[in-house]
Design a protein around this nucleic acid. Structure first.
Lengths: 233, 233
DNA sequence: CGAGAATAATAAGTACGACGTTTACGTCAC
DNA sequence: GTGACGTAAACGTCGTACTTATTATTCTCG
């Protein structure tokens, strides 16, 4: 159902990554390469490549004579979009969603402020377009369309900041927004206040007002955090 | 000299990663696995494992019948500490250092504010200890000692924030600080004002004053940014 | 002469078996 | 009890053979 015909490697990686980051294999537990090879019915070659990738994400550690041991969660590369996706699909999605939203609340106001200074005319245009798209899809259960515009909107802001580290957080934000829409039961339409704030943010960026952009983005973040508090304990 | 007896895999990965992220292999250029195997005089197995890791960092893309192509820098996982290290060792270290410092200036004030709320007594104690350590090593060319305390200080703040995403930025901050000390010519002792601010930040956290902690951390960040402007064009 | 289909060539993907190397762990002597 | 020592278990590396997807070429037919 997930990723099948795309290669054995991908399939094994996805399965193992999910199992580990969901806590199914607790830290300290050991996996043996040829056990895994038997379990997935693939050669040890494939398993070794997967283990090397998991090792590069600091999810596991491979030592001679002992095996592949799962590392404690505190060492994981939680900025790796793949790890984020695995964790959002796992058990403690709420906690994860909260961490990521707090991260957003720190980054995006600064990014918006920078965007108000550096955004190109093209970026301003897309921003406005996306904000209007959000308005258009904010009523009548068009959640998927709304999500698409929302993701694109925040991606443009991050890109327009001109800071590469911010720009690369676009994927993270996309995962968060998608996770919120898909996993959290969203029976209702988006908060109208949030929609308005996005429109105003597009304006602030277009008019080159960093302070306003920062302030409005903070409000958006507060709204997102509040939404989490309401919907999740 | 670098990483040698730690395994062929590590050596090849380090070399290739550095070459790619330093722009030596421009985006779009293709590498062939058995060419690489000949070049490094290792088996194709080792090369394949390395390629899989580089692929997971989005540095390269491997396609059948075409080879391993280097991806554009915009897709790289720039939050991977290994990638950060490679890029800081490469040509555009100044640009990279600036991006990372801006990132810090967004994250750390919020983290400090949270730390002032959540820090344990133990964390407060270590914070104070590290601040005193910075004072003690701030004069007389004890740059290495100062660096150690500085890294530990910021790591404690990030950990004490209670947010896992912030906590995991400790490695990034460590790389930035180490890069600043080692690569940038630091003939002089650290800025006394910065040292004082660290002491005051430790106090603010201990006294549970989020606003002060946030404000002081912002000042530290401004100082770091200013330092970059002075030392690098 | 051109468009599309059959075919060949290429490089990665996978498998398997062998051997090397490190290292935890048990054994034995003292 | 403590130390040296040997052993076996696991990963690390290698070479080779085979499979598969994809591109490039060639061939055929209109």
């Amino acid at each position: 159902m997930t990723t099948q015909s795309q290669g054995l490697h991908t399939h094994v990686l996805e399965t193992l990554g999910l199992e580990i980051s969901s806590g199914q294999c607790p830290p300290g537990s050991v996996l043996r390469t040829d056990e895994l090879a038997r379990r997935f019915d693939v050669s040890r070659t494939v398993i070794r490549e997967v283990v090397r990738v998991l090792e590069s994400m600091h999810l596991v550690e491979s030592r001679r004579r002992v095996g592949v041991t799962v590392r404690p969660a505190a060492t994981w590369n939680v900025y790796d979009p793949q790890v984020i996706r695995w964790r959002l699909a796992g058990a403690d999605r709420p906690r994860q969603l909260r961490s990521l939203t707090v991260l957003r609340s720190a980054i995006e106001p600064v990014a918006a402020s920078l965007a108000a200074r550096h955004a190109t005319a093209e970026q301003c245009a897309e921003l406005t377009e996306r904000a209007l798209g959000m308005v258009a899809t904010s009523r009548g259960q068009q959640l998927e369309g709304y999500l698409e515009h929302d993701i694109a909107f925040h991606r443009v802001v991050l890109n327009a900041s001109g800071n590469e580290m911010f720009a690369r957080l676009g994927d993270v934000v996309a995962e968060v927004l998608a996770g919120r829409t898909h996993h959290q039961v969203m029976f209702e339409d988006p908060d109208p206040a949030a929609v308005t704030l996005h429109v105003r943010l597009a304006e602030a960026v277009r008019e080159g007002d960093p302070e306003a952009a920062e302030r409005i983005t903070k409000e958006i973040a507060v709204g997102a955090l509040h939404e989490l508090d309401v919907l999740a304990p």
